[in-house]
Write a protein that binds this DNA or RNA. Sequence first.
DNA 1: GTAATTGCAAATACTTTGCCACGTA
DNA 2: TACGTGGCAAAGTATTTGCAATTAC
Lengths: 141, 141
Amino acid sequence: MNPLVKETIDRCRKAGLRRTKALEELIITLLESERPMTLAELAASGRLADQCDKATVFRLLQRLAEHAVVRRLGLHERAAYFTLLVPGKHSDYLICTKCGSIEAIQAPCPVHQLEEEIRQKTGYRNLYHELEFFGTCPKCA
Amino acid sequence: MNPLVKETIDRCRKAGLRRTKALEELIITLLESERPMTLAELAASGRLADQCDKATVFRLLQRLAEHAVVRRLGLHERAAYFTLLVPGKHSDYLICTKCGSIEAIQAPCPVHQLEEEIRQKTGYRNLYHELEFFGTCPKCA
DNA sequence: GTAATTGCAAATACTTTGCCACGTA
DNA sequence: TACGTGGCAAAGTATTTGCAATTAC
């Protein structure tokens, strides 16, 4: 088993969550995905489809988000997107507004300094950011 | 009347939209607002509440978004937010995840260079970005 | 044994559309 | 006059909750 899976489950356990089949499969699914996924996508995906109800996935995501194991993203669609938070990793995204494709951007994120500035000037706590680029991808153009 | 209102209405006219009372009031409302607003907020706001139906505001926003007069933002809430696009102006936002307050960030946006890089490397067209900082504001902390 | 977790179904919230009346160009 | 626009009400989509049954610890 991917050590990151074990690690992530450990974080959940420490947060007081029980180790259920659904939790495991959800984490594996999120980890396997290269991009954020919606609740509907997650609930319909192979690992989870026969494993548990959509409401369960919803409540799991909710709990995991509370404990900063996943993050809920906007990404402009009607449905919310979720992605696993891996300590030390951060992604910004490039999204095609025509076909809806989503890809993570590799380049180092250029906003850390501004984030630090905001932290100091405004006194906000637990600051994090979300950065997305939208446009028409070459295929759709 | 604020010259920006006239200017914006002109842009709408050029896009083929008719100059209606609802259009005018919507643009004024968006322009007066310091921050993005939801459809519900807009439809309930003084200028529009007695002026027109929520469906009308919805369809107006839709048309305006198509013609890049307004932009639809995610901002993490269940409801979508809308903001007027003023040529040459761009805002990033700082949002409190507890009380939901939204404020525009004054600091110059640090991602233009990355945006340019992406434009060149990926061939995406009509590129723009959305950047938000989330955290707990001093009041809520 | 006890409290967290789950499934199912029902309730909400927000968005979107149909259809006919109306107003702008 | 012609076609974009508006109002009202209904339908659609995604999210959220209640409650009893189940499961992890």
